[in-house]
């Protein structure tokens, strides 16, 4: 791999707090190594901003290895930037060329209000989980792990849905700002397992009600969510959620 350095023109959304209107600022960054990660490039810029006496760019990040789901930048029109199946923190600068202009925006959705600069409030996701994204089992109630056999194919499909990192890229990419991929991943994860079946109906109904309440849009099956998902969660989960919801909604006797 040949390494190179580059100069870039960054346009970054700056917003002091929730109330502030916000605007784009332009920054020239030079001598960026192709070996850096995207966030390290922002680190370099921030160090410079601090030394110059201005406010560094605030952004969410934590594990920097693509699993915690905290990082959340909308880079050149795509959540998490140009690579497939990648979080912002895994994106490296070799994805860019010398002289490129990079526009960095926060996730945009009314349900994800901006806290500062590129940080958004994703607590709506926590509230959706609170509404039913669990199996009600108190500590100590469990039977032996092997007393509940699970068909391997279903266990694998359940795991594939459970890989969701709750980053919100699906909402950011969806033209309707819908959280259906997120909700469907959780519904599928639990609906595919026998342990999840006692609460199967109420779970999907309650989680969807909460999603609507939080102000996310509805799904129109465009597939943009699947295309940006850093964990490549399949849109098939949304169809499964639909089936779960419709059958629960039509058969629940209350």
């Amino acid at each position: 791999m040949e390494h190179y350095t580059m100069n870039l023109n960054l346009q970054v959304w700056r917003q002091k707090n929730k109330q502030d209107k916000g605007h784009f600022d332009t920054y020239q960054v030079s001598n960026i190594s192709s070996e850096m990660s995207f966030l390290e490039m922002i680190d370099v810029l921030n160090e410079r901003l601090i030394r110059e006496g201005s406010d560094p760019i605030a952004f969410d990040h934590d594990c920097r290895e693509g699993i915690c789901g905290m990082c959340s930048m909308y880079i050149n029109g795509k959540p998490h930037g140009p690579w497939e199946g990648t979080t912002t923190c895994q994106l490296h600068m070799r994805a860019f060329r010398d002289g490129d202009t990079i526009v960095v925006e926060p996730w945009r959705a009314k349900a994800f209000p901006v806290i500062k600069d590129l940080m958004v409030d994703r607590s709506a996701f926590d509230r959706i989980i609170q509404s039913g994204g669990y199996i009600s089992v108190n500590t100590g109630n469990a039977v032996d792990g092997n007393s509940i056999p699970v068909e391997k194919e279903k266990a694998d499909a359940s795991f594939a849905a459970a890989m969701c990192i709750g980053c919100g890229a699906c909402v950011a990419a969806c033209k309707n700002s819908s959280a259906m991929l997120f909700v469907s991943a959780k519904v599928s994860h639990l609906a595919l397992l026998p342990q999840g079946s006692p609460e199967r109906k109420t779970r999907v109904l309650d989680m969807m009600a909460q999603m609507d309440k939080e102000g996310f849009g509805s799904c129109t099956n465009t597939g943009a969510c699947e295309a940006v998902c850093p964990k490549e969660i399949s849109i098939t989960n949304i169809a499964r959620l639909n089936a779960e919801y419709i059958s629960a909604g039509l058969t629940e006797d209350k």
Binding site: Q11, G22, F24, Y74, N76, G77, K78, P79, V103, E105, R108, A109, K110, A111, A173, K175, N176, S177, S178, G215, F216, G217, S218, T220, A224, V228
Partner: peptide, 13 residues
């Protein structure tokens, strides 16, 4: 659905 975004993106997907 259109009303859910708020501020629109500068660069679209």
């Amino acid at each position: 659905n259109r009303s859910k975004r708020g501020i629109s993106y500068k660069v679209n997907y």
